[in-house]
């Protein structure tokens, strides 16, 4: 496993700081770009995601997990990001890694390159992701005797941007998430939680892991990549 920096291409005159990605790269045939869950779910599912990559690596598959600008170790400002800027980064990562497939986790599918086949694990919509973060802000406000509603916050956020559950989101990102209603049809096969067994780790109050679930997701991917073999390579 290697953690290193890479330089996404500049967009117009905008600066493009280095971003970090985590890779298992031995120049093998199958190369999977992994797009993580977004926001709070990214933290909760980071270990699960990397464990899936580790299992794929053990079975002959290269993977790359890029940071989106403003997330994880990125030095970029989160509040200047949009779903479109993340799509550009995802696309650039795919090109740079020479990805043959893409695995998206949860709302990560909203930024998945539309031309890469692969898998979308438990995909969710932008509006659902946003509504949950708005609800967290309403609940936190209640604790501080501040009365806000999701509808009011959403209306304000679409104009001015908003800090939601500790994540500073720009107005365009909030508009993007609010209208990213349909999970992009794309060429990726949906994998539901029921196929992994147990309950989704994004539900957990604290980051958690499940060796069984990581194994199950990797097995499903390997079965697709090596359909002629009885067991994983």
């Amino acid at each position: 496993m290697i953690i290193e920096s890479w330089q996404p291409p500049k967009v117009g005159d905008l600066p493009s700081p280095e971003e970090q990605w985590l890779t298992f790269d031995e120049g093998r045939k199958h190369r999977v770009l992994v797009l993580p869950a977004l926001f709070d779910e990214a933290n909760k599912m980071r270990r699960f995601t990397v464990e899936v990559m580790r299992r794929l690596d053990e079975n002959g598959v290269d993977t790359a997990l890029p940071d989106m600008p403003g997330c994880n170790e990125s030095l970029a400002a989160l509040d200047s990001q949009t779903l479109q800027s993340w799509r550009r980064t995802a696309q650039a990562s795919a090109l740079r890694f020479a990805a043959t497939h893409c695995l998206t986790i949860r709302a990560g599918d909203l930024i998945g390159p539309c031309d890469l086949p692969g898998w979308k694990y438990a995909p969710t919509t932008g509006s659902k992701t946003l509504r949950e973060m708005l609800r967290a802000r309403v609940l936190a406000g209640r604790e501080a005797a501040i009365h806000e509603t999701r509808d009011e916050l959403l209306e304000y956020g679409r104009r001015e941007g908003l800090v939601l559950a500790g994540w500073p989101l720009g107005a365009q990102m909030i508009c993007d998430l609010d209208t990213a209603e349909a999970v992009a049809p794309g060429p990726r096969t949906a994998i539901d939680q029921v196929q992994l067994g147990g309950s989704g780790l994004w539900l957990r109050a604290e980051p958690d892991e499940s060796a069984e679930q990581s194994e199950a997701l990797a097995e499903l991917i390997l079965a697709d990549l090596y359909p002629d073999e009885d067991s994983a390579k």
Binding site: D40, K128, R131, E132, M133, R135, A136, R137, L139, A140, E143, A165, W202, L203, R204, A205, E206
Partner: peptide, 16 residues
Amino acid sequence: HLPELDSMAVAGLLTE
């Protein structure tokens, strides 16, 4: 009462 049940966790709980 439960420290791990912060506002984000409760938001997830209600949505579920």
